[in-house]
Write a protein that binds this DNA or RNA. Structure first.
Length: 648
DNA sequence: GATTAGGGTTTG
């Protein structure tokens, strides 16, 4: 008996293979000591690398519809014989995989006769196997298996966030980069330089790596012409050997590439800040490099991006958009004089994007119409408000209103009012929660009910548990919030428990009191928490969503008076956590964070000094916008994509 | 024929 006819198979690559009825074992039914065939979605993988033994090694973790994971160790003296996995989400078929026990868990390892097929995991993509096997079976059943796994993955596995294009990279990030190799150079024994691009302009110019003898392999004219689009990646240790073997022009995926802002070694700092790209030694988190074939769908996309970027660069080459970055490829390998001259007093804030944008003097900004975006460099002459309690507000992302954070005294009063009505016992002990009631002795028999929300029918441990509190005072709720993961103040309604007036928090987690917008929320009762996937360790916005609450965001709202010597401009700062790197939601109840903020503000705007040299420069990104007040229109400014710099 | 690695970021 033979397989389906050639006409029925997805590619002409198939050879005729005697049909074997392969049985695939679901991952929840694996037993140690057996040899099985399995299908699975790749959840994690290390691209093949040379082990310390004699073979290449690839570690692959898969999952199937049973939600059970299996980590497989695959060895081969032949690189090509290992599964050709390009990204998380790919689907693999393993034949003759041995299951053994390791640390009390099943583990897969290849045995003689092991063979693998790999498929794209994207719904609707052609079901074309990747394999180095000369002949292999592929039936209609396999087609169905792959399609079923794709459907399941689309609703059960969140898409991988590791594939990032250079226009979206941020400092301090690990990501997978799909790129073309344009140049290589030896740095030293333990490190090697790869010059790569993906056609997108990074938000920060790349660092330029100095090599001992600057012998660059590659097309120097092309590298010079595309320099603003090219990044320098340094690979270390075990990756050096692989990197040396790469051919300029090839398409690569570099896994778990690490970015960090260029370290500052002296007081003086060249401007602008540059981004470093490191592929550290080792294989943790799948660090490695894999060559992608031209046929790969991601490479096809990459090529389009490269072509259009190259075309644009050719057209604009005579007027380079970033003249200040141009001198860094000097043959001496040192920073250009131009850069050295631009060494400036260290900025107290830095941009988190738009590093390529030219700076604009404030006097020019003040003359221009809104809306526009600018990069500026100025000193902070003054700011308001001066007290913290005045600078933290609640902002509705839906209707954009700003409101004050309610005062504790007001919360106490509302909670006290709510506690006058006794908990309704007919609402106690449901499928969602177990209830317990306490009576106070000396407070007129006030009753407090606590409803412990179950997760999958079970009560979580207290530090993971969500509780509903009825009739409690602010003090009691505060105490409970120390012990339990989350607290929702409730009262008894007609048919179900309800959350209180939105003047009180709808959720308390540790230090943070979450409020909802009165304008935008349309409240639902407590049984709607049943829709929460994980009722233990729940997150604020999923609770908000289940209860029909539009959550308010804690923001710092401040006005900065900025001065760069050419003009003075008032700019708002509306920021939840990015600017100060302090969450506005937590600072109100945290003395340490409050002290940190004072330190930062004293650094940005030293008290008791006249505006002069001792004030630090602030690099900021600001945008202008129009505000209409009756018939009057005026321009406002707001700070964006800016953060306080680390102090060394 | 056994070994390799056994996922969970370098510190350049």
């Amino acid at each position: 008996m033979f397989m389906l006819s050639v006409r029925d198979r997805p590619t002409e690559l198939m050879s005729l293979v005697p049909a074997t009825n392969y049985i695939y074992t679901p991952l929840n039914q694996l037993k140690g000591g057996t040899i099985v065939n399995v299908y699975g979605i790749v959840k994690f993988f290390k691209p093949p690398y040379l082990s310390k033994g004699t073979d290449y090694c690839s570690v692959v973790t898969i999952v199937d519809q049973t939600s059970v994971k299996l980590t497989c160790l695959l060895f081969s003296g032949n690189y090509e014989a290992l599964p050709i996995i390009y990204k998380i989400g790919d689907i693999v078929r393993f034949h003759r995989l041995k299951i053994q026990q390791y640390k009390m868990e099943p583990q897969g390892i290849n045995t003689s006769g092991f063979a693998s097929l790999t498929f794209e995991g994207t719904l609707g993509a052609p079901v074309t196997p990747r394999t180095s096997s000369k002949c292999y079976s592929f039936s209609a059943g396999d087609q169905k298996m792959v399609e079923a796994l794709r459907v399941w993955a689309s609703t059960h596995i969140s898409p991988s966030l590791t594939l990032v294009q250079l226009c979206n990279v941020q400092p301090m990030q690990y990501f997978d980069l799909t790129c073309q190799l344009l140049g290589t150079a030896e740095v030293d024994e333990a490190s090697f330089l790869l010059k790569v691009w993906d056609g997108k302009m990074p938000p920060f110019p790349s660092w330029r790596v100095l090599t001992r003898e600057y012998i660059l392999e590659g097309d120097l004219n092309q590298i010079d012409r595309l320099q603003n689009l090219i990044i320098d990646v340094v690979v270390y240790d075990n990756h050096v050997k692989v990197a040396k073997s790469l051919k300029v022009g090839s398409f690569l995926r570099i896994y778990s590439l690490h970015t960090k802002l260029q370290s500052v070694t002296s007081e003086a700092q060249p401007s602008p800040l540059r981004l470093e790209f490191h592929l550290h030694g080792g294989t943790s988190y799948g660090r490695g490099i894999r060559i992608l074939p031209e046929s790969n769908s991601d490479v096809e996309q990459l090529k389009k991006a490269l072509e259009s970027a190259d075309l644009t660069t050719c057209q604009h080459h005579s007027t380079s958009p970033h003249p200040e970055h141009d001198a860094t490829l000097s043959s001496s390998g040192s920073l250009s004089l131009h850069d050295v001259e631009r060494c400036q007093q260290r900025s107290a804030t830095i941009l988190t994007d738009h590093q390529h944008l030219e700076k604009t003097p404030l006097c020019a900004i003040l003359k221009q119409k809104a809306p526009q975006e600018y990069r500026i460099r100025a000193k902070l002459r003054s700011y308001k408000p001066k007290t913290l309690s005045q600078s933290v507000k609640l902002h509705c992302p839906n209707c954009s209103t700003l409101q004050e954070v309610p005062h504790e005294d007001n919360l106490s009063i509302i909670l006290q009012d709510a506690s006058t009505k006794a908990p309704d016992t007919k609402l106690h002990n449901t499928l969602l929660y177990d209830s317990k009631t306490w009576s106070t002795e000396d407070q007129g028999g006030r009753k407090v009910a606590v409803h412990f929300v179950k997760n999958n029918g079970l009560l979580p441990l207290s530090n993971d548990c969500l509780i509903l509190v009825e009739g409690g005072t602010l003090g009691e709720i505060f105490k409970l919030s120390r012990k339990f993961h989350s607290v929702i103040p409730v009262r008894s309604g007609q048919e179900d428990l309800e959350i209180l007036d939105l003047s009180v928090p709808f959720l308390i987690q540790g230090n943070v009191y979450y409020y909802g917008c009165k304008n935008c929320s349309s409240l639902r009762t407590i049984q709607n928490l049943n829709s929460l996937a994980n009722k233990a360790s729940c997150i604020s916005y999923s609770v908000a969503e289940a209860l029909g609450v539009v959550p308010l965001r804690y923001v710092f709202v401040m006005t900065f008076t900025l001065d760069d010597g050419t003009g003075v401009l008032e700019s708002y700062l509306v920021d939840s956590d990015k600017f100060f790197q302090i969450p506005a939601s937590e600072i109100i109840n945290d003395d340490d964070l409050q002290r940190s903020l004072s330190v930062i503000m004293d650094r940005l705007c030293p008290p008791g000094l006249k505006l002069g040299d001792s004030y630090p420069w602030l690099e900021c990104f600001i945008k202008s916008y129009n505000i209409t007040n009756g018939k009057e229109q005026h321009v406002c400014y707001q700070i964006f994509d800016t953060t306080v710099a680390d102090v060394d």
